[in-house]
Nucleic acid binder design. Structure first.
Lengths: 253, 253
DNA sequence: CGGGACTGTTCCACATCGTGGAACGCGACA
DNA sequence: TGTCGCGTTCCACGATGTGGAACAGTCCCG
């Protein structure tokens, strides 16, 4: 294992402070170093903003700099980490690619995907952004929005991606209504010919959609909504996985 | 300004990564250090978990350790920030020190205190951990626990701190029952001779106690529970402050 | 297919930097 | 007033971190 002694020691000091504010002597005891060494490390960490002294006292605590460094990284990373095992299970269960997206303005932003075990599959969309109306994830996210927000989306010109893309606001309202009832939404050949999908939303603490998971695949073998061959079973699996993710987030919160 | 060169450099590297994943060469350019130096710093940060390499790639990004260090601090820091004005008010209102503690296993961990305006006062306990049964805060936190949890606590040997420390499980159960009814708990000379206190719990979203606030002072002048001279008024003030804190947390959540 | 360019990684001679024991100043307490 | 324990500072010393150089691997272009 590579090591820089001072960095190792600095992190030992930071970990000691992770439990709450402490003085030099207590930190020295915990990390088993002389007080002078600990004092110097603390002073260096204070200079970096990683540690700060309590006002009017001599105890030290974790500083804003660490919060700042961690802050840019946290939210999506947690969601991806919590969601990943569910995507793996879904891909195996359905034989199709399973993905995660988060809302970003009026688009969905694909942030993770577990590929299909099938040799014939839809490519990885991670990193791509697509408007709500052409994706199953977008429709279920809209289903979790307030009507005013839905109307704001529908008020703008909606791009037609294929001959089958739905851009009529009245038809979209009806699909959003159904997604609210069903808990999932389907699309077929609307973003691109030959690609179908079904999605369910991941709910935040106030019921808002913080993301959605979907399964998608080539239309020639992907079940349709009304397919007696298994469409409902795929939708149920996606809804169940989304519910497990929502529950995990609440426990983690 | 105190400095440990390796710590300065490590934080420069972390800041470079704060914008998103980067390779060794780009980090070296940004922090103006040789690649071998940056490679060694990155390896040390990887060893600490503060940085990680992207799976299958060579770019580095901020790691979970920083998120963990920052996360451990944020909830308590928020709680401390929200609670502080209430502690200041309580100290002025009662003339005694007011403090905040959070549960930490079967102990209370004192994380903040507003000192008494009185020249004769109990010292600052911030940073100290004490078992539940010797503190008023511990008793109200237990009162917010499920019975199974209370029994787990009572099943262990309980340390006697003074001649007046209650260690009889039956007596403690009765006190916890009363705390559930009253919404507060008193202690007198049980942790240390000459110190009395009264506490109320701060409730989390599911009703569990995420912390407790207390007022404490020297027993010779601190009101007792049944003191016609004002015990109930002090308890009421602590309960009211705890309720305001709980409400603020719900609004902030 | 081979060479060049660029990356990340590793090595090691060297001297700079971090170490830690000791001492000091300060505040609290009996 | 003296003692204790804290946090802070000093400095001789040697252990550790440095950074130039070389290497291995990958990608791109002719």
């Amino acid at each position: 294992m590579s090591r820089v002694q001072s960095i190792e020691r600095a992190f030992a000091v930071l970990s000691a402070l992770g439990d709450g504010p402490l003085g030099v002597t207590v930190v020295a005891e915990r990390v088993r170093l002389p007080k002078s060494t600990v004092a110097r490390l603390l002073a260096a960490l204070v200079a970096e903003g990683a540690v700060e002294q309590l006002p009017g006292g001599t105890d030290y605590r974790i500083g804003e700099r660490l919060v700042g460094l961690a802050a840019g990284v946290q939210p999506t990373r947690s969601l991806v980490a919590i969601t990943r095992p569910q995507l793996v299970d879904l891909a195996l269960l359905t034989g199709e690619a399973a993905g995660l997206s988060i809302p970003d303005g009026f688009t969905v932003h694909y942030v993770d995907q577990e590929d299909s075990p099938n040799p014939v599959a839809v490519r990885d969309w991670t990193g791509v952004r697509l408007p709500f109306h052409v994706t199953s994830a977008g429709l279920v996210i809209l289903a979790h929005c307030r009507n005013a927000e839905v109307e704001r989306f529908l008020a703008q010109p909606l791009e037609r991606f294929t001959a089958l893309t739905v851009t009529d606001p009245a038809v979209l309202r009806e699909r959003i209504r159904r997604a609210r009832v069903d808990g999932f939404a389907w699309t077929r050949d609307e973003f691109a010919e030959g690609i179908s999908s079904v999605a369910a939303a991941i709910a935040g603490p106030d019921g808002e959609a913080i993301g959605a998971i979907h399964v998608h695949g080539p239309s020639y073998r992907f079940p349709a909504a009304d397919d007696p061959g298994g469409g409902q079973a795929v939708a149920d699996a996606v809804v169940a996985a989304a519910a497990r993710i929502t529950a995990s987030l609440r426990r983690a919160g």
